[in-house]
Design a protein around this nucleic acid. Structure first.
Lengths: 204, 204
DNA sequence: GCCTTCAGTGAACGATATTCATTATTGCAG
DNA sequence: CTGCAATAATGAATATCGTTCACTGAAGGC
């Protein structure tokens, strides 16, 4: 019984999400008003609330769409089943470049969604867990294969990688630029081998 | 020519900051209204704006005060000039426990201040740089002393430590609890020696 | 051709950050 | 002790913005 075609509804929804993405990326969540977004999408204020429960829900939709795109790439990389170090390097590169290419959206994610009290259980949280599980499986396999110390805590490694990438991309986003490949290699080397120099020489 | 004593002005300011800290910690930046804060501090709405330029400025004051307290601790630890690994462990422990003890304020910092476009140059940013420089000097000294590989990038290490601690404390804050000492030790071990298991099987 | 059903509208509402004209208080001069 | 600037303090008014809702009109089944 839809009075308009499902296609038209989808188009309406898409145009609202597109307008919201631009507005949020440019002005931030607070800075972009629902009225601005509605005008940019060519609809009335009220219609936004027929498609989305709240302004926040609209933000979630924007970020979910973005996250899903990135996640598909990461899952493709993991599915290649390349050697452990190569896979980890590729994941870090892709993660870093996603953050750098869409710094505005990542800023929104960090500032507005991850810190929200209702983050757990949200669709963005679910996507985050999918990424988490890619990393977790990779590391567990490397432990089983003997490439990684058995006494490592997988959750710790995951938090270190996530936190590092996020922080690196963050300080790069509002500062000087950053060479993705070189930074990814440095980070990989640090995570794999640590700060301490190889035991070939002196050291108590 | 102050009409009231400087002491009274300071008290007024303090009571507003105290009320703001409670309100922000409990309800978040958005959730706490200036009217609520003013009432809790026993002053009128308007007076808040004689002491602070805006609600955001008030948030900055709250976080600056918190940050300064923590920073003093960290500088004390660094000033002890203990061996590299001990100092790094102590810094990580203190950093982690600060995040855990005041998760609400740290959440505010991440969500509301660090992502603000005017973060660079703010008083909180200056405090952050002080912490940064503690870590930077420590690592540079360790490189000079031979405890750390010379080819390491100090900025990378800094971002890894900051990002890891932040992410660890964050996922601990809205999940199960976390043993500060044990987590700090694990993180230290990972940063020092990496994921790859030692070639000869011995452990420091 | 009428009637039901919703998509769509935009004015109205409530909340709230910020301002400002007004009032109260303070320290000091005479 | 008293009156007088100077200014601390007030809180009603303003502007903005998210959200709601009573209403409009077009599409399609009968």
């Amino acid at each position: 019984m839809p009075v308009i075609s499902p296609q038209r509804m989808q188009d309406r929804r898409d145009s609202i999400v597109d307008a919201a993405r631009s507005a949020f990326a440019q002005s931030g969540f607070q800075g972009a008003s629902v009225a601005d977004i509605a005008r940019a999408a060519g609809v009335s204020d009220g219609l936004v609330y027929r498609y989305f429960a709240s302004k926040r829900d609209l933000l979630n939709a924007v970020l979910t769409e973005f996250y899903e795109r990135t996640m598909a790439d990461l899952e493709t990389i993991a599915a290649l089943e390349a050697p452990f170090e190569d896979t980890l390097r590729a994941l870090i590169r892709r993660h870093l470049s996603a953050f750098l290419a869409d710094a505005d959206l990542c800023r929104l994610f960090i500032a507005e969604v991850r810190t929200a009290t209702d983050y757990r259980g949200s669709s963005v949280h679910t996507l985050n867990r999918r990424y988490t599980s890619i990393l977790t499986r990779l590391i567990q396999a490397a432990v089983a294969g003997g490439q990684v110390r058995a006494d490592i805590e997988v959750r710790l490694v995951r938090d270190v990688i996530f936190g590092s990438v996020e922080h690196l991309a963050w300080s790069a986003a509002n500062g000087r630029s950053l060479d993705v490949d070189r930074t990814a290699d440095s980070l990989l080397s640090l995570i794999l081998h640590g700060l301490v120099r190889p035991a070939t020489g002196d050291r108590p």
